[in-house]
Design a protein around this nucleic acid. Sequence first.
DNA 1: CGTTTGATTGACCCCACTCAAACGTGGTGG
DNA 2: CCACCACGTTTGAGTGGGGTCAATCAAACG
Lengths: 244, 244
Amino acid sequence: MNEAASLNFDTLKLSCGQCNLRELCFPYGMPEEDLHRLDAVVELRRPLRKGDYLYRESGPAKSIFAVRSGSLKTMVESPNGDEQIVGFHLAGELVGLDGFRDDKHTCACIALETSSVCELPVSRLEQLCEQVPALQKQIRRIMGKEITTDHAMLLMLGKMSAEEKLASFLLSLSRRMEERRWKADDFVLSMPRQDIANYLGLAVETVSRLFANYQEEGIIDVDRRRIHIRQMQRLEQIVGECKS
Amino acid sequence: MNEAASLNFDTLKLSCGQCNLRELCFPYGMPEEDLHRLDAVVELRRPLRKGDYLYRESGPAKSIFAVRSGSLKTMVESPNGDEQIVGFHLAGELVGLDGFRDDKHTCACIALETSSVCELPVSRLEQLCEQVPALQKQIRRIMGKEITTDHAMLLMLGKMSAEEKLASFLLSLSRRMEERRWKADDFVLSMPRQDIANYLGLAVETVSRLFANYQEEGIIDVDRRRIHIRQMQRLEQIVGECKS
DNA sequence: CGTTTGATTGACCCCACTCAAACGTGGTGG
DNA sequence: CCACCACGTTTGAGTGGGGTCAATCAAACG
């Protein structure tokens, strides 16, 4: 255990109004004056290291979390023991919304790399909701977005071929990179092939072969986890032309 | 157009407190006195006939809906035009939550048979939220449940074999029948094989063959859309024993 | 009745999985 | 510094689950 790791992280807290993720995160669209009140709710947590759990399935759900840096994955477990990754989460995205059902988490959340999160305790969030009616709407919006994202993923798993799935995955990542003002066509995957395969409902070997195919065709350059997209429109074309 | 269909459906409105679906539906867990206030928000809609749209993708989302009778399906459309059914909805269940994202629906909702719904206009719901704080929590719970359900479906589409998918589907339906005080082992499917196949990410022929297999093995009796489950534990066993 | 729509059954085949082995790459300790 | 190992990734060969195509059948409907 590092001594520095036991610092009081409240002293490091940044205000939501000054956070460069505010347009992507919880504060999006909220009036300036309400953001100050939000600050009082947010706690900065000690950073997670790769592989650390933020929360576990069926564990108590007292908070929701905003990713501040790094990235996380959420996964559900089947009765027979194998797991399905249901989402990858980048800076500014929120996790833990599944816990609203009955204050228990129905999925586990694990850091893909060293990551930090802001914690929003539900009890305090509820209190603030009574003072700031706009906050309720905000929560509903965020949850509505989660539902829409899950629906898109259902479509992917249910209807797409392996080739389409991977193209769809890369495009989704690329767009999220762009939202964050990072390069849309040049980024590093924070997850291993195994996780990509799991997420897409494929075998690792298939993912590996598809990357090789894309590279062969000059659509992307792959070096380990580094991805450079050379022909974005080809990827879009692959996703658009199902069953042809 | 039938003359009777243009009756004022408000006169037929039942109060939530007296509805026999209240334990499954929106009012679940809410105190008696708040239910009266909820009544003022709820509008009964003209019944939908089979194939009617309750709402369409990218249409305005001004309300959420509770299924009063009958059943519905929700579906998303892929860029190339084919559709994925993301849910079947029975009496007492809520649809339209995806619209909270930005007041536009991201999926379409269609009646599988003659069905009626209660409409809860979001604007009125928001007003009531300010008077009844418990209502906010209720909405979050319902949305949390939707997210959890979607995650379970992701697991199904991503990790299960065709045999496991269908068993899982039948068990899910069976449990929901039981919740509604109907027979858990004897019910009629409101959706065609095509829709089951679409939902499970399979071909119609595969669903048909699997039904035949199950019948062969004496697990279920199938007659058209009528399902009689003879050996519930065999179905549970199929779902539990993946990859064996 | 013929027509239409939905369900079943059979024959065939292909996509993606499985199994197996080789190949970096990075970390560790001698 | 290099040998070694562990792990993630790639590549090849073979196979099977489930898709596709096509024909048949059954029920519902006008």
